[in-house]
Amino acid sequence: MEKQAKIYVAGHRGMVGSAVIRMLERNGYTNLIVRTSSELDLRNQQAVLDFFEREQPEVVIDAAARVGGILANNDFPYQFLMENMQIQNNLIDAAHRNDVKKFVFLGSSCIYPKLAPQPLKEEYLLTDSLEPTNEWYAIAKITGVKACQAIRKQFGKDFVSLMPTNLYGTNDNFDLNTSHVLPAMIRKFHEAKENRNVPVTLWGSGTPMREFLFVDDLANSVLFALEHVLPEYLYNVGTGEDLTIKELAETIQKAVGHQGEIIWDSSKPDGTPRKLMDISKMHHLGWKHTVALSEGIAKTYDWFLANQQDYKQVKL
């Protein structure tokens, strides 16, 4: 990939998109195109087509999506299904129509069946039913994967899908109504510490196992996909290591310095029992993560401390 290649990063202000921008700039890519949602509504097909015809990007990285945790997925199923399909379908179709050389589609490990064998292999896609608490987002992302695969199969174009495990890091979302588990825990433990180390109540039993990838490592996998021709249409991106939610909570509690009790509310859903990614395909090609979980949590907490004025304090 030439350093002057015209690269459009969709969703550049989100956690993933901003990490991709930082990674590309650090590695000498200078011709980057971005648009805010107010400048370009990716749900509007004609607006997206007009943008592609005008700008003619050579590469597209789709990091744009409506995202959230269990609560947000459960409360807004229609938006999570429809808006994500609108965004990705408009981008994929416009890229195809305008002869984009390379398209990198970013999804999520939730595309795999709830009770699939562990670790999750790419070939497990569509072999069983999904986790009900986030099936709307998962179905949308599956259609994106299959659309890229169809273009690859029918037209021979370099459209590839990267499916990361649970992400966290710089520029994460710490809104307790829409955030994922790791940033939500960081905020809860921090605010409990600030409130004389009151107890922290967390959802579920603490027994499900999860894998977490620092967002800069995902950005590095995107860079890897740009600079190499990946022979298959779908690749898992993760660490290949997981831990229980209880262990995660204790790790974050220690990093934050909270001294109080952890209470588990077992009346709340756990979600999928385990989601560990098989990342052997990416390892075989030469990519591997570099940021350990403890290091990534420390970096994420530092970023939260520097930006917490953006979040209203919650009652605990």
Rank of each mutant, 00 (worst) to 15 (best):
176 L>A: 10
203 W>Q: 11
249 A>Q: 02
222 V>D: 10
170 T>C: 07
242 D>H: 12
176 L>M: 05
153 K>P: 00
162 L>K: 09
219 A>H: 03
231 P>M: 12
225 A>E: 13
224 F>Q: 15
164 P>T: 15
187 R>L: 02
243 L>P: 01
195 N>M: 10
247 E>P: 00
201 T>N: 03
167 L>D: 06
239 T>H: 02
156 G>P: 02
228 H>G: 09
158 D>T: 12
231 P>C: 13
219 A>L: 07
251 T>Y: 02
197 N>D: 15
231 P>T: 15
179 S>I: 03
140 A>C: 03
134 N>W: 07
231 P>Y: 12
161 S>Y: 01
251 T>I: 03
203 W>C: 09
254 K>Q: 08
139 I>C: 13
163 M>A: 14
140 A>F: 00
229 V>M: 05
226 L>K: 05
175 D>C: 01
160 V>A: 12
183 P>G: 11
151 I>K: 01
240 G>P: 00
151 I>T: 12
185 M>V: 09
221 S>T: 13
142 I>H: 06
196 R>C: 08
251 T>V: 05
154 Q>G: 13
157 K>R: 15
228 H>V: 10
230 L>R: 04
192 A>P: 00
234 L>N: 11
212 F>H: 08
167 L>V: 10
188 K>S: 13
209 M>I: 12
235 Y>V: 03
181 V>L: 12
128 D>F: 02
178 T>A: 11
236 N>S: 11
253 Q>R: 04
145 V>R: 00
255 A>H: 01
231 P>S: 14
129 S>G: 02
188 K>R: 11
255 A>K: 01
161 S>C: 04
226 L>V: 11
243 L>Q: 07
245 I>Q: 05
145 V>I: 10
165 T>N: 08
170 T>F: 15
238 G>D: 14
210 R>P: 06
243 L>V: 11
155 F>L: 10
251 T>G: 00
192 A>M: 02
215 V>A: 12
228 H>F: 06
185 M>F: 14
196 R>F: 10
211 E>H: 01
169 G>F: 01
212 F>Y: 11
181 V>I: 15
211 E>D: 06
221 S>P: 03
237 V>W: 12
141 K>P: 01
222 V>Y: 06
216 D>K: 01
130 L>M: 05
134 N>R: 07
179 S>Y: 02
222 V>G: 14
209 M>G: 13
162 L>Q: 11
